[in-house]
Amino acid sequence: MSRRGAATDRHGTADRVVVADRIVTATGADGPGWIALGGGRVIDAGDGPTPTGDLMHLPLERLRGVVVPGFVDQHVHGALGVDFGGADEAGARRAAAHHHRAGSTRLVASVATASSQATLRALGVLAPLVDEGVLDGVHLEGPWLSSTRRGAHDPALLRSPEPAEVEALLDAARGTVRLVTIAPELPGAVDAIRLLVDRGVVVALGHSDCTAAEAHAAADAGATVVTHVYNGMRPLHHREPGLAGAALTDDRLAVELILDGRHVSRDAVEIARRASSGRLVLVSDAMAATGWSDGRYTIAGSEVVVEHGVAMLADGSSLAGSTGTVGEGVSRLVREHGVALPEAVRASSTTAATALGLTGAGLDPGDRADLVVLDEHDRVDRVLRDGRWL
């Protein structure tokens, strides 16, 4: 049954149809189906083994595997030896292309703590790529973070938010900053949250030693995301649950989770998944060694050593991002945690898109022609982005 019913409608003209034994969409379709594509968009979609009406005469492409929406990674620092915070245009394109090929068809490039000058330079490189559609925005993870829960961020570069600096960075970004992580307990942080929200920026709470009450107050001020739950915050405690406790109980907050098998234990993953049902967002937090090699790197002004794919500060005091992808997290969620694929679709695409205000991420008519084909092991097999196979 068609959801639209014609080869040509208000979304454009279809030029081909992909068919699969199982298609899982953001709006709950799950079973045999087809998707008519044209001009980089989904023109029509329907259930059953074959399209109907005018679509029957279009070229058919039968896909092996399960089709799901392209993943949305809202927290990704780089790949292939490239860090978005220090990349030139060519390097940023290479890093983005790596994640696109891995299934993350929508990316928000994360820029870690740096001097104002270095951050402005990064914005100058990345903003045109957002305008072009290579990236879907920039994420500023710092410098307005807690030195107590800094992770890999250089404490000498951390500072409290000043309105003039916040405004200057947003102005330089020309509307391309989509997400900012901030520690709400810092002096001036709540005012900065209100300012960011007023400027159309999504605010995340993270790298914070705040209390649960401070986190809830930040949500009152407009914060709607928690950056990589458990990591970069005080441990959950039954008398003072902190940011982690607020993340798991405040329905206003989308909850990022790094599911790389290292950042969060299996039981802690299950606590987050069950407590924040419908609010969970898989992120990679991928750093420059992703898809590259072990060795020494610099992240947020700190020296990092990557061994066997694990990124640690050189002094061994903290993990320093991951070397995985959202697609690998999807496979773990389904294979190791027994999560049904529709829930994995929400965690890998739908919830992030909603939290970020991104449209067209669900494989329904009018959406972008972004899809991932998963193999029999729930691993990424093929990726279609903007209607083109990568």
Rank of each mutant, 00 (worst) to 15 (best):
L58Q: 12
P51C: 08
G38R: 06
D54P: 13
G70H: 13
A29M: 14
H75I: 10
A87T: 05
A45T: 13
A79P: 01
D88N: 11
R93A: 05
I43M: 13
V42H: 05
V24L: 12
G85M: 08
G81W: 02
T50Y: 00
L58A: 09
I35F: 07
G33W: 01
R64H: 14
P69H: 09
D88W: 09
R64S: 15
G78Y: 07
P69Y: 11
L60M: 15
G38I: 07
G48S: 08
R41N: 04
H77R: 10
D54M: 00
R93Q: 09
G53Y: 00
D83T: 13
V76N: 10
F71Y: 15
G70S: 06
D47N: 05
P51F: 11
R62E: 14
R93W: 00
D47T: 14
V67S: 11
G28P: 15
G46R: 01
D44L: 03
D54L: 06
R41L: 14
V76G: 03
T52Y: 00
E89I: 05
H75K: 12
T50Q: 15
D47H: 04
F84A: 03
D88G: 14
V76M: 08
A36S: 07
A87W: 08
P32F: 02
A29D: 13
G86T: 15
A26V: 14
G85A: 11
L55G: 12
V67G: 08
H77D: 11
A87M: 02
V68A: 07
W34P: 03
G70A: 09
T50A: 15
I43S: 11
W34F: 07
T27Y: 07
G39R: 03
V76T: 14
H57D: 15
V67N: 11
R93H: 02
E89H: 07
Q74P: 00
D54T: 14
G81D: 01
G40A: 08
V72I: 12
G70T: 06
T50I: 00
D83I: 01
D83K: 02
H77E: 04
A45Q: 04
G40N: 01
H57F: 14
A36M: 13
R41V: 13
G33T: 02
